[in-house]
Amino acid sequence: MKAYKFLRAGRHGPFSDFVWPENSWVVADGALDACRSGIHACRPEHLGYWLLPELWEIELDGDLVETEHKIVAQRGRLTHRIDEWDDAVRHDLGVECVHRTARYAVLELRELGFAREAELLEDAPTAGELAEIVVQVAERVSGDAADLAGYVGDAYEYAQIGHVSGAAFIAAHAAELHAPAGVDDPFAAERAEQGRWLAERLELTG
């Protein structure tokens, strides 16, 4: 099956430090065990958890175990690097995460009756302007609403320095804090949305 794998620069496995060869099968020793033994990869909806510098398409074969956040296989082969996962897309995903964080802040502000402050955030056309407005908003409100406004600024800072995994985590943490009604696991739901955004932008399938 086709799946995706994030690696550190130079095809380094992020946790094993294994240097992956291109277009050669790598076979795991022993029984599959998520996080320990096996070739680890993910589906598009898992991508948000594993944002690292290199994104590869990987072919998996043999026994497979699928968990909530990853797929583990007996054999895997990097088929090609997804070059479209570049600085521009990382920047855009970071900005998307700023806006996504702001949406949770807006929902929280409206729930708490801060309609004017919610409007200020909604009317901000750019991530940069959002980051300026949330400073004022955070001073006018308190509790979770103030924290969520602060998170918008934090996400912006991460996005600005190209730390997209940081911005994405903040958006997921904001989802968890706001806890939209009817969503069982807001953190996971936000991560899945990030994965879908990325898959659509990079035209990934599978």
């Binding site: 992020p14 946790f15 998520a34 996080c35 320990r36 944002l51 968990t67 730390h163 995994s165 940081g166």
Partner: peptide, 14 residues
């Protein structure tokens, strides 16, 4: 496995 996943997803952004 659950703790390990928590740990490793944390390392991605921290």
């Amino acid at each position: 496995e659950r703790q390990r996943t928590s740990y490793e997803t944390h390392l991605v952004y921290c």
